[in-house]
Design a protein around this nucleic acid. Structure first.
Lengths: 199, 199
DNA sequence: CCTACCGATCGGTAGG
DNA sequence: CCTACCGATCGGTAGG
């Protein structure tokens, strides 16, 4: 019975994530959500305590998932380039497999109220700092060019934001190819390095 | 008097852009906006015809600006790498100088209603296709690596989205350095190409 | 540019 | 899980 209740709640969360992605959190009403799961608006409150609780669940579930994955990457034995590659792979995998709930992390988290807003921002900041530490290590070792680490961090970070807007599973490009191309582009650039062949 | 009216309207548009950026279009009420420009909500309607007209103005003004700048880049004599660099510079310049209204292009345009929504999507699609044509030309010429052009397009495109969230004029990094680093990262990658020095 | 006000819709509750 | 309903707030209008 507990699992049945969780299933129902999970179903509501997923429908909400999809609506939030399509119309945004503020423009999605509880009546929209109720219609999507074939209930009356008031019945939603048997499964969730309010609109913001839904957003909170989506935001924190995903934030935890990213932090957990980051921990695994950090404890691996790869060099910085390998770790950045693994993180790019992570972002793409999450964006493609759970296409509707990434938007919470990207756009809609700001509608959280305190104290959850501050807690979320702190988790996000922690993720960014630890990601940045990997980049800084690569720069220190000389395997990465000496960019400003913040610029490199945010450029890489947001370079993967388009995927959940754009990627659809049937899209002729496989996830593996997507990962390979995005990682290649960010790590080795768009330019063809034929200069030393010419000279 | 016409200019005075335009000044007033411009002032309202700028205040609205800032509120939309902070809270999103849907979560910004006409009363919020009225307070920001020191009017009563009903008085706003002497300057604008409704809430959506504001969003429409912001979206289309910016879309036209990007298309106009793209036209100039296209008609220039640079090679593809120079053109991509010029477009990166454009995105960064607009994002830093008009920090509040880029969000309309990125996030809030979807709240437009028909027929404006379709018109906006068409302009956006045109911009993407013409940007992509430059990438495809570079691939054909061999100056760019043979990535999937769509993947390269969107990765570059969204790699600049973080700037308007993050950049503040006093931030110790100049716009010139920002342009140089982002363009360098996207064109030549994060990895240090020391392989031929070793071998 | 304001006061006064409209119908519609919002998130949510009471009670069964 | 529903019907019935709440006060608050929404975008916008009338009239001056």
């Amino acid at each position: 019975m507990a699992s049945k209740k969780n299933n129902r709640k999970q179903h509501i969360l997923e429908a909400a994530a999809q609506l939030f992605r399509e119309k945004g959190y503020s423009a999605t009403s509880m009546r929209d959500l109720a219609k999507a799961v074939d209930l009356k608006a008031s019945s939603l409150y048997n499964h969730i305590s309010g609109k913001e609780e839904i957003l909170r669940d989506i935001c924190f579930n995903n934030a935890k998932r990213f932090l957990e994955a980051l921990r695994q990457v950090e404890s691996g034995t790869s060099n910085p380039a390998g770790k950045v590659r693994a993180l790019i792979r992570l972002h793409i995998q999450v964006a493609t497999e759970d296409i509707t709930s990434i938007m919470a992390l990207n756009d809609e988290w700001r509608h959280l109220s305190e104290p959850h807003l501050s807690e979320f921002i702190a988790m996000r900041k922690e993720y960014e700092l630890r990601f940045k530490a990997i980049i800084e290590q690569g720069i220190r070792e000389g395997s990465f060019k000496a960019y400003d680490a913040n610029i490199a961090l945010y450029t890489i970070f947001s370079a993967m934001r388009w995927i959940y807007d754009w990627y659809r599973p049937g899209r002729s490009i496989s996830i593996e190819q997507l990962e390979e191309e995005v990682a290649g582009l960010l790590l080795t650039g768009l330019n063809n390095n034929y200069s030393f062949e010419i000279s």
